[in-house]
Design a protein around this nucleic acid. Structure first.
Length: 222
DNA sequence: GCGACAG
DNA sequence: ATCTTGTCGC
C-alpha cells in the first residue's frame, strides 16, 4: 500500500499545494449522528506512535467505541507537514472502523495552514469524509479576541482570506482554533465543534481519543 | 539573513 | 508531542 511517509519535505510541500486545490469547504454533513475524535500519542524509545479513533453519538456525546493502532513512526515532526508524520498511522486506525461516521475531528488544523492543507484537510481528502481541524494554539494568521463567554467566536484570517474561527468553548478560558478540513464550511465546523464541547475546553471526541491513546501507551510495549 | 513554527 | 512537582482554584 502507498506509504504516505515516503516523500521528501520539498516534494511534500509541492504535493500539498496540489491537493489543496481539491478541497471542498462548503456545505455541511447531511444528518450528524456519529462524530469521531482522533489523536496520536508517542513513545520515546523506538519512534512508536499510538493512534486512537473514538466514536461518540451526536450531539449528546455518549461514548460508542474506540479503535486503536500502534506502529513505528517513520517521519519527523516538521511544522506544516504533520499529515506526513501521522497520516499512515491514522489511516490504519480509521480502516478498522465499522460504524458509519459523519464527521471526524482532528487534533491539528484544517485549511488554517501555510498551503491550506493541515492534517484534517489532508486526511479528509484521502478518506473523502467531512473533517474539522481543532488547534490548541495559533499556527498562523490573525484574529480579534473573541468575547469572554462560552460560544463567543471571532474570524480567523490569513493572507486576506478567512481560514476558520477562534472559538471560546468555556467562560474565561483560552479559545481553541477551528478550521474546516474537507467537505464542510467554516460556520458549520465552528457550530458542530461547539456542540461537541461539554464541560472542558477541548471537544469531547478529541479528549476521549487523547485519553485512550495515552492509556494504550501505558499498557504494552510493541 | 532572522525569527516563527499545529502535534 | 514528551520530560516533570508542586500548587492555585472550583
Amino acid at each position: 500500500m502507498e506509504r504516505l511517509e515516503n516523500i521528501t519535505p520539498k516534494r511534500a510541500r509541492q504535493q500539498q499545494k496540489e491537493l489543496a486545490q481539491k478541497l471542498d469547504i462548503t456545505g455541511r454533513p447531511q444528518s450528524i449522528r456519529v462524530v469521531a475524535g482522533i489523536d496520536v500519542a508517542y513513545h520515546k524509545k523506538p519512534p512508536t506512535g499510538f493512534a486512537a479513533v473514538s466514536l461518540l453519538s451526536y450531539p449528546d456525546m455518549t461514548p460508542i467505541k474506540t479503535y486503536t493502532e500502534l506502529d513505528i513512526i517513520g517521519y519527523p515532526y516538521i511544522p506544516g507537514l504533520l499529515g506526513y508524520r501521522e497520516g499512515d498511522l491514522i489511516l490504519s486506525a480509521i480502516e478498522k472502523v465499522e460504524e458509519e461516521v459523519d464527521v471526524f475531528l482532528f487534533d491539528g488544523n484544517g485549511i488554517a495552514h501555510p498551503r491550506r492543507l493541515g492534517i484534517a484537510s489532508h486526511i479528509g481528502l484521502l478518506i473523502d469524509k467531512p473533517t474539522i481541524g481543532i488547534g490548541k494554539s495559533q499556527l498562523l494568521g490573525q484574529y480579534k479576541d473573541p468575547g469572554s463567554g462560552r460560544g463567543s467566536v471571532s474570524d480567523w484570517t490569513d493572507q486576506g482570506e478567512t481560514i476558520g474561527t477562534v472559538l471560546r468553548t468555556q467562560d474565561d478560558t483560552n479559545p481553541i482554533f477551528v478550521s474546516p478540513g474537507h467537505k464542510i464550511g467554516i460556520k458549520e465546523a465552528s457550530d458542530i465543534t461547539l456542540k461537541c464541547t461539554k464541560e472542558y475546553r477541548i471537544p469531547e471526541p478529541i479528549r476521549m481519543a487523547h485519553q485512550e491513546a495515552e492509556k494504550y501507551k501505558d499498557e504494552g510495549d510493541i
